[in-house]
Every structure is written in structure tokens, then in C-alpha cells.
């Protein structure tokens, strides 16, 4: 089969899975109800932090703090949605709709199918992201200074960071394949770990030192710091952990860790699929 044909075939799988995912995400409600539900949660998350700042600092809250948490919060929308969304697919297909066996025996690449399903959550996250940015621009004293020259670097870091989350989602998905009950909680927990350890709403330097060392090797941490630097048009943020490390070096770390994640996700997903099949638990339902 020619490379072009393989590409077309892979693209068709991802497209079909993404369409299926989108239908499942959105077809239970009128579009306007769905839109309200999609935007209300991220807005509430944003307001929680705004009011925490307002309570603790009053009017003296500096723009640096707002800029820092706002960018982290927006990027995290993708982390949570994609990571949780991909592993959730296993539960939806296996336990709720009980269709996973039919998908398994169909001529689709399973890995690509799950990537495609993750795209639906990516769309939801993008809508939430757009609304959050609009709300931030209205209610917060944000000061962004991204130069035109930084746009391509930002786009590249965004794409690589996003892809790394898809690969992490596949790893979660692979684990969920062999878990009966706790896959759901596991992906929530991993998202929660990233929320606390990657400096989403506060600088990593506020964490205990031992945790800072772990935080500094997670791709999401690189992605957040690169995004903050490029959007704010600065070479360092208020997070002291990254001082002395150039944006280029962070990009290299993000790129290398994403490649490692890609290779690991393929190997791990294939191993877990085989394990689930050998144990006869691919279509197991637990009514849990």
C-alpha cells in the first residue's frame, strides 16, 4: 500500500472516530443548551480563582499573578478535556453502550480510533478556551505582549504540547482497558496531579522542593512555561524554577519528551490491548 493510501486510511479513521465522538458529546441536547453547558464550567473555574485573588489580595493583586494563572488555566482546559476524554471512551464504549467488541472486530486501527475520539474533546476544550479568553479580556487586568515574530513558535509549541497530551491520553486509555472500576477516577487523578504539579494556577516554585524536581520533567510544565513566555512577550515569568533556562531549551525538552511519549504510548497501548485480550476482558462490563 502506498504511503498516500495509508495516510488517507488513517485520516479516515481519525475523522470517523472524531465525528462519532462529537455526536456523543453533543447530540443529547439542543445546540444552545450544549453551548451553555460547554462554557459554564470553565467560566466558573476562572471565577473561582479571580475571587480567591480578590479575597486574598484585594485591589492590590498584580497583573503578573492574573496573567500567570489565566494562561495556565486556559492551557489546562486542553489537558483535562483530552486526557479525561480519551480514557473515558473505554467506559462509554465498553460499559455504557457495550459496543467495544464491535469496534474491536472492525477493520480500524484501535490506537487511531481513540485519538479520533479525543478530537471531540479537543473541540469542546477549544470552545471553552475561546469563552474563557473572552471573559478574561473583559474581567481581568491582563497584559499580553506577544510579538508577531513569536506567533510561529507559539503555534509550534501549542501543537507539540497538545499532541503530547493526546499521547498521555492514550496511555491512560491503555491502562483503563485492563481496569474494571477505577479507570475513571485514575484519569481524573492524573489530571489533578498535573493541575497541582505543573504550575497551572500558581508558580511551581511555591511547591516543596522535592515536588519541584518532579514538576520540572513533566511535558505539561514546559508547555505552560513556553506559552506564558511567548504570550507575555518576556524571557522569564514569576516562576523562579525556570529562570536561567531559555525558551529554546524548553522547546527542545518539550519536543524530546513528546517523541518519547509517542513511542511509549504505542508500545504500551499494544501491550495493554494484548493483555486485555488474553485475559478476555476487552468487553467486560462491571455495572459499576
Amino acid at each position: 500500500m502506498a504511503v498516500k493510501d495509508i495516510y488517507r486510511r488513517f485520516a479516515a479513521i481519525v475523522k470517523s472516530a472524531a465525528w462519532l465522538g462529537w455526536q456523543l458529546e453533543s447530540n443529547w441536547a439542543d445546540p444552545w443548551i450544549f453551548a451553555v453547558i460547554t462554557i459554564i464550567r470553565p467560566l466558573a473555574s476562572l471565577f473561582i480563582i479571580i475571587f480567591m485573588f480578590r479575597f486574598a489580595l484585594g485591589p492590590s493583586a498584580s497583573a503578573d499573578f492574573f496573567n500567570f494563572f489565566f494562561i495556565g488555566n486556559v492551557i489546562y482546559l486542553y489537558v483535562y478535556n483530552v486526557l479525561f476524554g480519551i480514557s473515558q471512551v473505554i467506559f462509554e464504549d465498553r460499559e455504557h453502550y457495550e459496543v467495544i467488541k464491535y469496534i474491536y472486530i472492525s477493520p480500524v486501527n484501535w490506537y487511531l480510533y481513540f485519538i479520533g475520539r479525543g478530537f471531540a474533546r479537543f473541540i469542546v476544550a477549544s470552545v471553552s478556551c475561546a469563552v474563557t479568553i473572552a471573559a478574561g479580556a473583559l474581567f481581568l487586568p491582563l497584559k499580553f505582549g506577544m510579538s508577531a515574530a513569536s506567533v510561529p513558535t507559539f503555534a509550534l509549541s501549542f501543537a507539540v504540547g497538545l499532541v503530547s497530551i493526546f499521547f498521555m491520553g492514550i496511555i491512560m486509555c491503555a491502562l483503563t482497558l485492563v481496569m474494571a472500576r477505577h479507570g475513571n477516577m485514575m484519569s481524573e487523578s492524573v489530571s489533578g496531579i498535573f493541575f497541582i504539579s505543573c504550575g497551572v494556577i500558581f508558580p511551581i516554585s511555591a511547591l516543596p522542593e522535592w515536588l519541584q524536581k518532579i514538576s520540572a520533567v513533566i511535558p505539561v510544565s514546559y508547555w505552560l512555561e513556553i506559552s506564558r513566555r511567548l504570550i507575555l512577550g518576556t524571557d522569564k515569568t514569576i516562576d523562579g524554577v525556570w529562570h536561567g533556562i531559555s525558551t529554546g531549551a524548553l522547546m527542545a525538552r518539550l519536543g524530546i519528551s513528546t517523541v518519547v511519549l509517542f513511542i511509549f504510548s504505542i508500545l504500551f497501548f499494544n501491550y495493554m490491548s494484548m493483555l486485555a485480550r488474553s485475559k478476555g476482558i476487552i468487553d467486560r462490563t462491571t455495572s459499576y
Binding site: 480563582i49 480567591m52 486574598a56 489580595l57 494563572f69 497541582i196 494556577i201 511555591a206 511547591l207
Partner: peptide, 9 residues
């Protein structure tokens, strides 16, 4: 996470 937000302030 939220406690660290206050701590960082």
C-alpha cells in the same frame, strides 16, 4: 492546588 495559590500569595 488552591491552598498553594494562597501560599504563593
Amino acid at each position: 492546588s488552591f491552598a498553594f495559590v494562597y501560599k504563593s500569595m
